[in-house]
Amino acid sequence: MAIDQSPIVVVDHLSTTFRTPRGPLKAVNDVSLTLERGSSLGIVGESGSGKTVLSRSIIGLLPTQNVTQTGTATINGSEIIGTRHKDLLKIWGSEVAMVFQDPMTALTPTRRVGQQIAESLRINLKLSRKDANLRAIELLRQVGIPSPERRARAYPNQLSGGMRQRVMIAIAIACGPEFLVADEPTTGLDVTVQAQVLDLITELRAKSNLTMILVTHDLGVVATRTDNVAVMYAGRIVEQAPTASLFARVAMPYTKGLLDSTPRIDAPSHTRLSSIEGRPPDLVNPPEGCAFAPRCTYATDECRTVRPELVRSTLDANHLFACHHPLNGHQASSSLTENK
């Protein structure tokens, strides 16, 4: 079999709108992106920026009521948007898997963790009960859980947060998916455990050439664990670049604001943080022009009236930004209609 070189995930002009009592809320607004096989993309942004909704839209994991979607998203060539839940079940688990932030609510509290791993093996891989149970123990060993035979019989409440997240990862990788969405997988875990869980994900990705979207609010996690980064603000991608390029040469004032307001462990104590004044806009009544303009120190009248499109930089064709006044010598080379 020839190695498939085509991108695994292609998202084109995707918008997701929720119907709310106050009016339509555009949580994801015209997002296009492409994921190459084996690559990893970090999606960062503050609460309400749309990062979780975007990642869930891509794999079709959103409720159908009160949600309207336009645009397309394909995984391995099959369309996700508008596909019925029943048909998506065939992809979930076997091709696509997700790790959630809170493993306590993602796991069933009344079933032993071994059974929960075995369940997807029996459904997707049609293994017998006995084989599935044996494989579940093997998976628990793979994710670094000590004495897996005993732990397989534990209920989720008998495990620590770090252990539960390892169980979630075991379920996610059970059927050998090609694409993993990890939504804040280490938020709520202690730093030493966070490092262990991220190391585990990195190791598993390397072993099976897994493509990953890592959703997080933590720029430190993104800096060290992903190849590419997309920064979201008010439902749109406002900057996207290879990780090294983004941190070396930020184009978008919002990204710079995020970086400058993050306290750093390698900065002297009492370093004054520069904060971003104000708050993100209300997505029911988004501002005209650039959504960040009301908080931006570089904003001009153009920013307040004309919405900047995501464009390529002349410095690096892989560095995209949506800003009329980019920083660090970035300049728009051409408008980006096809994000390939």
């Binding site: 770090g162 030493t192 720029l219 430190g220 993104v222 800096a223 060290t224 941190f247 750093r264 462990i265």
Partner: peptide, 18 residues
């Protein structure tokens, strides 16, 4: 602890266990 800077890199002295 992680630093928001990819050039700093990762330490390999992470603790085992909890």
């Amino acid at each position: 602890a992680v630093v928001p800077d990819p050039t700093v890199g990762l330490s390999h002295h992470t603790l085992e266990g909890e």
